[in-house]
Design a binder for these strands. Structure first.
Lengths: 202, 202, 202, 202
DNA sequence: CGATAAACGAGACGGTACGTCTGGTCTTGTG
DNA sequence: CACAAGACCAGACGTACCGTCTCGTTTATCG
């Protein structure tokens, strides 16, 4: 029989990360051929076990838990949200963000990749936020009238939006603004509307 | 001398749309070679005037005003938002949505395409919503404490989010949920409570 | 592993000859793309194994021994020369001649092709004539004072000269004239005079 | 009205020579586009007056009398031949030789170019040699039995042969060997056959 | 001497082929 | 018998030139 070689599997995932580490390399410019060569592995071996290049990248990405965005449950929801969002945004502002946006790009052309992205990456994060919002409703920090899933999307989606479109920066201010608006509260340090407008315009 | 040929320009944009109309064709699978052949045009002519395949697609997409998402200013903000979002979402649920998501995908790999997407497509829509939100604040429909740009992103981004990730459907319910949550009103009859929440937070 | 495919090699050479057989096709107008298409082969396969189009043509030309110009060693040198030259000239007057002249043309731009032409095509023929001239010297049919290589060139080069420049025809008369002049005999009956001349010069 | 512009004609021929002067540029790699640009002339102007790139090159080549190969008629034929051939060969060994061989290459694909090469370049030289050989016959230096045109080709063709095939060098020794053999005389400095053989092999 | 027609520079155009690259499949030993 | 190595068919890439075709803009006779 000769079962799947764990050595090969790891070489492939390692090689993928090594290649993606190069500032110039994108998921698109990365080729299966290059991965095979870097891993010292035949192309066939990759094609045998992964349905597409993007699948390898997602696997490699997850294998090394490249994104660390804890959600604390021992602090008030507002604070937990703040910690989580700031952490997420700061990571998305860098190389991991590029990777996520490129995987998302690949997933536009391949339903299998899209499903894999959701299952292996997206769902966990999404439900974590939904649960957090639900805790906020339970604790009274958030209005009981909001749909936790919709509110979660309204908090989370803008981060992806800026990541993908780049019309405005991914920074701490953004995290604070999102939370303040979501909780129906102006950001602490900038209460007035006109002040906020000026900030937004800068 | 020897000015640009309008005939060629139109042939190219038309051919691009014709090819993209095919259910199986994506922006990725579309090739400049195919456009040239379909348009009866030399490849050089395309390369001479467009920096990339995606640029041609954006031009073609815009040339024919493929997306019609009016924003009324003669009705209350809530209603204008509802009309706009329902229209936008219904179109994004179909072929135009696929195109937008694929252009966005391409833009992840090409700063020029990203800029073109923003300038030719995104900015108009974004500012239209921002202005709408500002009108809502002025008319008292929205709390004066929200940052119009942040709120706009919180309303708009989830649409793109579902378009790109596909974790939940793009339908009228979604439009209504977004508006209700954005206006701080889970439903019409709960206006008082949500108003209270906003007031309490200020 | 994965050795060269003999099937492909033959398809390519066959396709090349098939295309060149067309009266209108020249080595210049022949394209690697056309060979690949005709052979049902990827362009890469051609580029992998041949350094240039001309190299493929030379290979194809030689593979099928397209030129038959025997040199008899069982008859007097004059007769062997006559048979050989008449045969060579008659072939050069037709399609093979065009091919040779076109390969020679290509070789003016590519040292590798020039070397290949010499090694695969020219040298054999050249040395065959040199040896024939040497036999003529040994047998007394030719003056011992001539340099066999120079005399060979003087006999052989005019054939190429007419082939390439076309100032006068390639016909049997030409073969006879060359031999007569080379042997120092304008005609059979004037052997004495020419012998005298050579003797007088030594 | 508006006659041919002599200025343009000269710019084009000059530009052609300037471009061909570059060691790396060949008649093949030279493009009409490049000539037009270098000459500051529209492509149309070239196409209007010349049938092909090679025609321009021949014109440019001749305009500047790039080859100087005098034939003296005030010295014995042997000496005149020696002077002419040594001069010709020494020039053919350099850049002019490359040009001639490349023009000859081009002429293999274009009957018009071939005719132009003959008329503008070849015929003069050919008949000059024929006349020289005829003078040799009249003066008794050459046997009255040889056909002057055939002997001319036997003297002249080997030069082109070496130029195009490059199997042996174009040098003074070659000129002397040709003349010696043509005149039925061994070269003065190397009378013995074995000596000649060794020289030929080097 | 002003009209007018050809030649001119510029360069866009529809094409062809280039040589390179990658995708995904197939083949051939090796461990 | 899974693997590495890599050859294979296929076809798009972006580039270079081809030869044709407008464009205005000189020129230079001719009416």
């Amino acid at each position: 029989m000769a079962n799947r070689s764990e050595t090969s599997r790891l070489s492939i995932l390692d090689a993928t990360l090594r290649l993606l580490d190069d500032e110039e390399t994108t998921v698109k410019s990365l080729s299966i051929e290059a991965i095979a060569k870097e891993a010292g592995v035949g192309k066939t071996t990759i094609y045998r076990w992964w349905p597409s290049k993007a699948a390898v990248v997602i696997d490699a990405f997850m294998e090394n838990h490249l994104l660390h965005t804890p959600v604390r449950d021992d602090v008030p929801v507002r604070e937990a949200l703040a910690i989580h969002l700031r952490s997420l945004i700061s990571q998305y502002a860098g190389k991991p963000g590029q990777l996520v946006s490129q995987i998302l790009a690949e997933s536009q052309y391949d339903a299998e990749v899209r499903a894999m992205f959701r299952e292996r990456f997206f769902d966990d994060r999404y439900w974590t936020i939904v649960r957090l919002v639900e805790r906020g409703i339970e604790s009274g920090e958030l209005s009981p009238d909001v749909d936790p899933r919709i509110l979660s999307e309204m908090i989370y989606a803008p981060v992806y939006h800026r990541l993908l479109i780049g019309h405005r920066p991914l920074d701490d201010q953004f995290a604070d603004d999102l939370i303040a608006t979501a909780l129906g509260l102006p950001a602490v340090e900038s209460r007035g509307r006109s002040t906020r407008k000026i900030r937004a315009a800068s």
